Simulated scan of single mutants.
Amino acid sequence: MPTTETDQHELRRLVENWALWRDAGDWERFATVWHPLDGWMTATWFQGPATDFIAVSREGFDNGVSILHFLGGHTADVVGDRAVAQTKMTINQRAEVDGVEVDVVCTGRFYDFCARHEGAWRIVRRQPVYEKDRLDLVDPSATLSLDRELLGRFPVGYRHLGYLQTKAGFTVKTGLPGLTGDVVQRLYEEGAKWLAGSATPGDPH
Score class of each variant (00 low, 15 high):
M1L: 06
M1Y: 09
T4S: 13
E5R: 11
T6R: 06
L11A: 13
L14R: 04
L20D: 11
W21D: 00
D26T: 14
E28S: 14
V33K: 01
M41I: 03
M41W: 06
M41K: 00
M41R: 00
G48L: 05
P49V: 11
D52V: 06
I54G: 01
G60D: 08
F61I: 10
N63K: 02
V65G: 15
I67Q: 04
L68H: 11
H69C: 00
H69N: 00
G72L: 07
H74T: 04
T75D: 09
A76F: 00
D77C: 05
D77I: 14
R82T: 07
V84C: 01
V84I: 07
Q86S: 13
Q86L: 15
Q86E: 11
M89D: 05
N92P: 08
N92K: 10
A95N: 02
C106N: 08
T107N: 06
G108L: 01
R109N: 06
F110T: 09
D112C: 10
F113M: 07
C114W: 01
A115R: 11
R116V: 08
H117I: 12
H117R: 04
E118A: 03
E118T: 13
E118K: 01
I123W: 04
V124D: 00
R125L: 03
R125A: 02
R126E: 03
Q127I: 13
Q127D: 14
Y130L: 02
E131W: 05
R134F: 07
D136L: 14
D139E: 05
L144F: 00
S145N: 13
L151S: 02
R153L: 01
V156F: 09
G157T: 05
G157C: 08
G157V: 05
K167Q: 08
K167V: 08
G178Q: 08
T180I: 13
D182G: 08
V184G: 06
V184W: 06
Q185P: 13
E190Y: 03
G191L: 04
A192Q: 15
K193F: 15
A196N: 08
G197C: 10
S198R: 09
A199K: 00
P201F: 02
P201R: 02
H205I: 09
